[in-house]
Write a protein that binds this DNA or RNA. Structure first.
Length: 621
RNA sequence: GCUUCGGUAGCUCAGUCUGGUAGAGCGUUACAUUGGUAAUGUAAAGGUCACGGGUUCAGAUCCCGUUCGAAGCUCCA
């Protein structure tokens, strides 16, 4: 028996005429319409019997339970097989299947009739499946009709281990996680897929409360709006990551955000991955929005005349945005988006030795970038994945990476290469709910240079395809903000004051005049401070001093300067430091030094809000 | 995408079970207050109870659908 099973929004069919003599007698030849239904196109084959029918219907019931649908239409469909059973047998078995599915709302379309039909199939991964049930098939073959990638992904055979910094590998079950709680979460998360949470992630409330980002209902899900505070933070992180990649040797480029899916180099790449992109039809072209910077940079590199002497050569782009049409149920706050900002740096290397050398540099770059962004080593754990072949040929390189991490890492070893890369590592941030999400990552790609026709000329004047590394030193910028907010929430939960690194704080210094008569003094003081690249504002509202301090605290502002009689007549400043909660007296110069020490080496941009709080609309409370 | 839960004033939320005049705090506005390091006082304005349909004499409340969000499943190039 062959079955094509489709989970449908709707199906309409109209019996038009009897095809065979013994066709079922029916009274109603009008159009039938069913909604929210699983349609099983069934071909009964020679040799099928009652046991096959039972097996088949139980498989159907099984998968319907999984997708949560209770309505079934059995649709006799001869065209699935060239070895059909006799119509009489077929009718008997079909009605047996229908009887055995009585707990469902089951019906069938008439047997032996020519029917016209119109069908609307749902888009989810389990919506379509085909089944072959035979007398001797002991186990069910439940094959999903979807992209090659999804098929392959479920077939990937892999082994999960923990590798210690000394290079020894241990089975996950045998590893002592007592000092590595987050790694345990990551290991369980990845390999066993165990999760149990029942509350929204804290960064979602914080991103709104701090007026950073919010959902935009008028857009698609997962496309966020960033308020002035959020844009300032995001733009500073973007600039910092870009500066660091340029220091490392990446050359910044800009490439289109949409591509023609029928361009020859896209076709084969596309077929390797599930179709989760945004599609746009324009003047007969089928365009899709990029989900990474790869295409643009590869198509560009294709034009380069490269010699081995030029390698390694690195291209970099900060994609604003990359688009992935993730399943709606997977989107969460700033953690998982459909439009996100991704720094993406590709290094073209002449051979595996050079690629391995390069990956070490980028590993250190990624570690350092995260650290400087305010994400500590203890906040993330590393996973490394590679093919068995790559492991056997490059053991020492893998061990060196793990050693650089200095702590045990999660290892996934693939029996064979399925993706385009032979090695991939990533740093996974573990949030307050025990969710892991990848930040930095790098890959060794051995396929795409060929696919995109990227070549260099080697020492012997032969053309070769370079090995390509794909590194994002920070991961998505939105995800960095998510990590910083989750860290702040954790501090808050532990009774510590939440805060941003000073260089990212929307306001670094707040000046509060005690009375209106000190306003002029405050103006000139803030001018003096802001010319030194410090974001300073004035709370000139007619509110009590206590309230204005409280609100500055709630905005996580690090330094508060209350200006009264005493300050106006003093050389020094009285500074309330949120970190300690104390008020200290410093000279103007010492104060600036204290700030500069903390923001050294980081980009700066001016206040992104009105300087006077009296002029500032309130976004959130 | 599936299952479950949720959407009430700008924000946080009560009211929904048991249908009958829509509530509080914060914020906003006005007036008074000129303050010394986490909430000054008084008053006022502010709601299509997410949207659409149904049941009912009557719907924020009950039913159906849609939409947005969250959790779980699945997934993450």
């Amino acid at each position: 028996m062959r079955i094509l099973q489709l989970h449908c929004d709707s199906i309409e069919y109209t019996p038009t005429k009897k095809e065979i003599k013994i066709a079922e007698d029916i009274e109603n030849t009008e159009l039938q319409r069913l909604e929210e239904v699983v349609v099983a196109f069934v071909a009964i084959e020679d040799g099928d019997d009652s046991s096959v029918a039972q097996d088949a219907i139980s498989q159907i019931k099984n998968s319907m339970e999984k997708i949560g649908c209770k309505k079934l239409l059995l649709y006799p469909y001869a065209h699935l097989s060239s070895n059909l059973a006799k119509p009489s047998t077929a009718m008997t078995l079909l009605s047996e299947m229908e009887t055995n599915a009585s707990e469902l709302e089951v019906s069938h379309s008439p047997f032996g009739w020519t029917k016209s039909y119109k069908i609307q199939v749902k888009g989810h991964p389990l919506a379509e499946s085909s089944k072959v049930v035979t007398k001797d098939s002991t186990d069910s073959k439940d094959e999903e009709i979807t992209s090659e990638a999804l098929k392959g992904e479920s077939k990937i055979r892999s082994y999960w281990k923990i590798m210690s910094p000394d290079g020894t590998m241990t089975n996950i079950a045998d590893f002592d996680f007592s000092n590595h709680k987050n790694l345990e979460i990551l290991a369980k998360y990845e390999s066993a897929k165990q999760r149990s949470v029942d509350e929204p992630p804290p960064h979602v409330a914080l991103m709104k409360k701090m007026a950073i980002a919010d959902y935009e209902p008028a857009s698609d899900s997962g496309n966020m709006r960033f308020y002035p505070n959020g844009r300032l933070i995001k733009s500073l992180i973007e600039r910092y990551v870009t500066d660091r990649v340029k220091d490392y040797g990446g050359y910044e480029v800009e490439t289109p955000i949409m591509y023609d899916s029928e361009h020859p180099s896209m076709v084969s790449y596309f077929n390797r991955f599930p179709a989760r992109q945004y599609n746009i039809d324009s003047e007969g072209k089928k365009l899709f929005l990029r989900f990474a910077a790869c295409f643009g940079q590869f198509l560009m590199a294709n034009q380069y005349q490269m010699s081995y002497k030029n390698l390694p050569y690195k291209l970099y782009e900060l994609t604003r945005y990359s688009f992935r049409r993730e399943q709606s149920g997977e989107l969460v706050g700033l953690r998982r988006l459909r439009a996100f900002t991704m720094p993406d740096c590709h290094a073209f290397c002449k051979d595996m030795d050079q690629a391995v050398d390069e990956i070490m540099l980028r590993f250190e770059l990624s570690q350092s970038v995260l650290h400087e962004l305010g994400i500590d080593e203890s906040d993330y754990d590393m996973a490394i994945r590679f093919t068995e072949d790559f492991y056997n040929e490059n053991k020492s390189a893998i061990k060196e990476l793990v050693k650089k991490q200095g702590r045990p890492v999660l290892v996934e070893m693939w029996k064979e290469k399925f993706f385009y890369f032979v090695l991939k590592w990533e740093f996974n941030f573990i949030d307050n709910l025990g969710k892991a999400s990848a930040l930095s990552t790098d890959q060794i790609d051995v396929e795409n240079a060929d696919r995109y026709g990227i070549e260099f000329v080697d020492e012997n004047n032969n053309k070769q395809h370079p090995i390509i590394l794909h590194n994002s030193p920070s991961g998505a910028i939105e995800r960095i903000i998510y990590a910083l907010l989750e860290k702040a929430a954790k501090d808050s939960k532990e009774g510590k004051k939440p805060q941003f690194p000073l260089w990212l704080a929307p306001t670094q210094v707040r000046v509060i005049p005690l009375k209106e008569e000190f306003n002029d003094f405050c103006e000139s003081l803030t001018d003096k401070i802001s010319v030194n690249n410090v974001r300073v504002d004035i709370d000139d509202r007619n509110e009590s001093i206590g309230k204005r301090i409280r609100e500055a605290e709630k905005e996580w502002i690090r330094y508060i300067l209350v200006i009264g009689e005493k300050e106006v007549n003093s050389e020094n400043l009285n500074i309330r430091d949120r970190k300690t909660g104390d008020v200290k007296e410093l000279s103007f110069g010492d104060f600036l030094n204290e700030i500069n020490k903390q923001t050294k080496g980081k980009p700066f941009t001016g206040l992104n809000l009105p300087k006077h709080l009296s002029k500032r609309p309130q976004l959130m409370v």
